[in-house]
Lab assay of single mutants.
Amino acid sequence: MSRESDVEAQQSHGSSACSQPHGSVTQSQGSSSQSQGISSSSTSTMPNSSQSSHSSSGTLSSLETVSTQELYSIPEDQEPEDQEPEEPTPAPWARLWALQDGFANLECVNDNYWFGRDKSCEYCFDEPLLKRTDKYRTYSKKHFRIFREVGPKNSYIAYIEDHSGNGTFVNTELVGKGKRRPLNNNSEIALSLSRNKVFVFFDLTVDDQSVYPKALRDEYIMSKTLGSGACGEVKLAFERKTCKKVAIKIISKRKFAIGSAREADPALNVETEIEILKKLNHPCIIKIKNFFDAEDYYIVLELMEGGELFDKVVGNKRLKEATCKLYFYQMLLAVQYLHENGIIHRDLKPENVLLSSQEEDCLIKITDFGHSKILGETSLMRTLCGTPTYLAPEVLVSVGTAGYNRAVDCWSLGVILFICLSGYPPFSEHRTQVSLKDQITSGKYNFIPEVWAEVSEKALDLVKKLLVVDPKARFTTEEALRHPWLQDEDMKRKFQDLLSEENESTALPQVL
């Protein structure tokens, strides 16, 4: 008996699950189920560990084997000379395990699969056993689809999209007709009724959600790893209520002995410091949205989908001078704002400069500016000194954290500008005749005249004003913003236009 009217009423009120309206889709043409990776026989039982391990490696599972009696060998002398080797079968990115008779397991190899009674669906509900069930008529011709799209860092995100009359449910929550939600590992998919569980979705590319604290899981769906560094790992996640993407940084307390840091400095109150950081608001710094204190720290951040500045300059790639100017102007505005709010970044580098898009002209935002507030000064500097390429001379020669101030950030900005303009770092371990530390503390950077011949004198002058060993003589952010190279009204107008595109209400910060 159909429950279409009941569920449609529920759909009209929406769902609290991570779902959002989605535009129309072009329906895929039908194809045989076997060619799409559906096993030839149905099963109602969950797999054992041996079955799972075989399939996850990209080899055929026991459900897909063919009797050897149906095959015969071709003698080598009868092999056609022009026969080309077969292409290897792509490894599946996800697996659906059937929970009921009449449904088959599915190895997801393609990027898009339609499910329903219509014969054009890649996964067609046409098993005779299924057709005899009382629920068969409640399934729509095109009930739902599972697909994946390219996300940040060229990774993939799996989604389920509801197109049914009676509802598609993920972990008992209604997706909603015309809406989608991301699928995470071990999600249970039910059709027409929330208790009519048909599939379990296994994402073969992500970790299980159960490793994360419950308070975090209640608000966010964790997904793929976006990156990792000395101070922690960053994962893509989704807000459950809105389906908006965020980035979540995970900082290990054990790695940084944060408990010991608190004992050594009783004034170090991470929760208080995070609340201060959350109040920071500038178009060129990453917004801190939320914070969870569990076995590790979880910092929920605004997501930038254009990648890191590092990706644009790695491998001796240089940027156009006009692009360097647009990016560097924004970096200076961001660091100036942090300094005005009493925050020294201490870890400025291309990896911590994020881009809003893949376009050459785009907004940038500074991230990882609050680590000293979370990890403690000593722990952070011990970590950073392991990779000193961007560290100021006074940091390398000081004991502990004494003896330096916000000028350290201006040195790091000078190193970043040098790399963007030239395509190579000013200080490098590859210069074996002088140690990296000695290069930095003496201010002897690697200047290649033929490379810098293409760079304007004004740009080079600003680099020199920032890479000054004496912090008292080094340019401040205010002085850098007043430098002739940055007195470019076309560049500032472009920045204002980019801000307006992102948010019509965002105004250009005042600069002296």
Rank of each mutant, 00 (worst) to 15 (best):
P128W: 05
R117E: 01
G30K: 05
S155P: 14
W97I: 03
D126V: 09
E81L: 11
D118G: 13
H13M: 08
S19W: 06
H13F: 07
I146V: 11
E127P: 13
F238Y: 04
L216W: 11
K249Y: 15
S5A: 15
M222V: 13
R181M: 00
Q20N: 03
S210K: 01
S32F: 13
P213Q: 09
H13N: 08
A267T: 14
T45R: 10
G229F: 15
N48V: 05
R181A: 09
A264I: 03
D208N: 07
N112R: 11
S24N: 07
R240N: 10
W93G: 02
S50C: 04
S62P: 04
T59M: 05
H143D: 01
K253A: 04
D265T: 00
T168W: 01
I189V: 01
S260G: 12
Y136T: 03
P47L: 12
L193D: 00
A257R: 07
E188Y: 15
F115Y: 02
A158T: 06
Y123D: 03
L268R: 13
D265V: 02
V25G: 12
C231V: 08
E70D: 09
V175R: 02
E76V: 10
N166I: 06
K179W: 08
F144Q: 00
E239Y: 07
G229A: 15
G232A: 02
A91G: 07
F115A: 07
G165Y: 11
T225A: 08
L130H: 05
Q27D: 05
Q10M: 05
R217L: 08
K119N: 11
E173H: 13
M46T: 12
S50G: 11
V211A: 13
R148Y: 08
L129A: 08
F125D: 03
S53H: 05
Q11F: 14
I157A: 07
G259V: 11
S33T: 07
F169L: 12
M222W: 05
V234L: 03
T45V: 09
A261T: 11
S31R: 13
S41G: 11
I189F: 15
S33N: 12
E149L: 00
A257L: 04
I221Q: 01
S67Y: 01
S40G: 13
V200T: 12
E70V: 02
T45F: 08
A215I: 12
P47V: 06
K245C: 05
E8W: 05
L216E: 03
Y220L: 03
S44E: 10
E86V: 12
G259R: 10
C121S: 10
V198H: 01
I248C: 06
N110H: 12
Q34M: 11
Q78R: 11
P182N: 09
P213R: 02
A94V: 01
M46G: 07
N171K: 12
D207E: 10
